[in-house]
Simulated scan of single mutants.
Amino acid sequence: MRVAVAQPASNDDVAANLALIDQLAAQAAGEGAQVVLFPEYATYEKRRLDETFARAAQPLGGPICADLASIARRHGITLVAGVVEASPVPERPFNTLAAFSPSGALIAAYRKIHLFDAQGQRESDFISPAPTADPVTFDVGDVTFGLMTCYDLRFPELARALADAGAQVLAIGASWVPGELKTDQWLTLLAARAIDNAVFVAGSCQAPPISVGHSQILDPQGGVLSRLSAEPGVAVADLDLGRIAGIRRDFPVAQQRRMGVLIRSDHTQPESAV
């Protein structure tokens, strides 16, 4: 399975963003990628969220997703991209990753669960959270991908739920807000989620100045298979899915979990068994 992460520098010009998605998708397909992952807010992005995101929102059956479906069809790829999806609350749309098959069919839509109310920003003022916390996966051949968005990366339980649901690859679309140590945290958390769950991780991030860039594809031990730095572009890697079983045999953490062992409510540790 050959996978690509695309790193655009999206802005608030939807037509220009779609043209760039088409260009990067063509580059990835030309390098043999079967699945191409674009970041959060790939079709509409600004330095800070505001009321214009609601005005840019469309249903998944609208013209923007039709254009994305056409790009997937034209290049014969599975394409995943972040869109602003109209919600039942018009002033607060969904932040959604939409996946399209090579035929242009919508095969998955993941609405962001954990909104970025941090670092002086409040995504929840302008975006609705997902109505459920159910993991969202889709299959390409015999490979299962699990979808996550940006701030979700800081919540390891979602990655574990996706792995439990069968995900072999975590596809993470992000617009990781810059700041002190933020690039280091992005890279560390990508590797941690790969290692935690013995899965491949594909992390696509918006390029600077809005975001930090440094999109990467990692193996189930956290090793970097392909990476970008700050500039827009595409990184491609071949995923040897057979490695997952061997790593999980060596480190059977999923079977060794002891979720019933909890810290007591008075915040003291239980007495050790004798």
Score class of each variant (00 low, 15 high):
residue 233 G to H: 14
residue 251 F to C: 15
residue 31 E to Y: 07
residue 112 K to M: 09
residue 210 I to A: 12
residue 246 G to F: 01
residue 104 G to N: 01
residue 153 L to K: 04
residue 274 V to T: 01
residue 268 T to P: 12
residue 205 C to R: 09
residue 217 I to N: 08
residue 229 S to M: 07
residue 88 P to C: 13
residue 215 S to N: 06
residue 245 A to T: 10
residue 206 Q to V: 15
residue 92 R to Q: 05
residue 95 N to I: 01
residue 101 S to F: 03
residue 158 L to P: 11
residue 212 V to H: 02
residue 111 R to P: 04
residue 173 G to T: 08
residue 244 I to W: 11
residue 126 F to I: 11
residue 255 Q to S: 10
residue 52 T to R: 08
residue 271 E to T: 12
residue 44 Y to A: 01
residue 160 R to H: 14
residue 256 Q to P: 13
residue 270 P to S: 04
residue 151 Y to D: 12
residue 271 E to P: 05
residue 87 S to F: 02
residue 165 A to F: 01
residue 89 V to R: 13
residue 52 T to P: 03
residue 49 L to V: 13
residue 49 L to W: 08
residue 57 A to G: 04
residue 235 A to Q: 05
residue 237 A to E: 06
residue 5 V to L: 00
residue 228 L to C: 14
residue 9 A to K: 05
residue 190 L to Q: 12
residue 131 P to G: 13
residue 124 S to V: 11
residue 133 A to E: 07
residue 176 W to R: 07
residue 114 H to P: 14
residue 166 G to K: 04
residue 114 H to M: 15
residue 174 A to W: 06
residue 132 T to V: 09
residue 19 A to W: 03
residue 154 R to L: 15
residue 102 P to E: 01
residue 160 R to K: 14
residue 243 R to N: 08
residue 175 S to A: 13
residue 5 V to Y: 04
residue 125 D to A: 04
residue 132 T to K: 09
residue 161 A to T: 06
residue 216 Q to D: 11
residue 13 D to W: 05
residue 49 L to C: 15
residue 52 T to F: 07
residue 145 F to Q: 08
residue 12 D to M: 12
residue 258 R to S: 09
residue 219 D to C: 10
residue 152 D to E: 01
residue 174 A to K: 02
residue 181 L to R: 15
residue 81 A to D: 09
residue 264 R to Q: 14
residue 21 I to Q: 00
residue 84 V to G: 14
residue 17 N to L: 03
residue 200 F to L: 10
residue 242 G to V: 09
residue 60 L to I: 06
residue 261 V to A: 13
residue 89 V to G: 12
residue 45 E to P: 13
residue 86 A to C: 13
residue 10 S to H: 10
residue 52 T to Q: 07
residue 24 L to R: 11
residue 62 G to T: 11
residue 162 L to E: 01
residue 139 D to H: 06
residue 84 V to P: 06
residue 207 A to Q: 15
residue 218 L to P: 10
residue 248 R to I: 09
residue 82 G to M: 02
residue 224 V to N: 13
residue 266 D to E: 00
residue 225 L to Y: 09
residue 207 A to E: 02
residue 234 V to E: 02
residue 270 P to Q: 00
residue 221 Q to C: 02
residue 190 L to K: 07
residue 107 I to F: 08
residue 56 A to E: 06
residue 22 D to F: 00
residue 182 K to Q: 14
residue 135 P to E: 09
residue 28 A to C: 05
residue 133 A to L: 08
residue 41 Y to M: 15
residue 233 G to T: 06
residue 240 D to A: 05
residue 96 T to S: 04
residue 61 G to D: 03
residue 250 D to W: 11
residue 260 G to M: 15
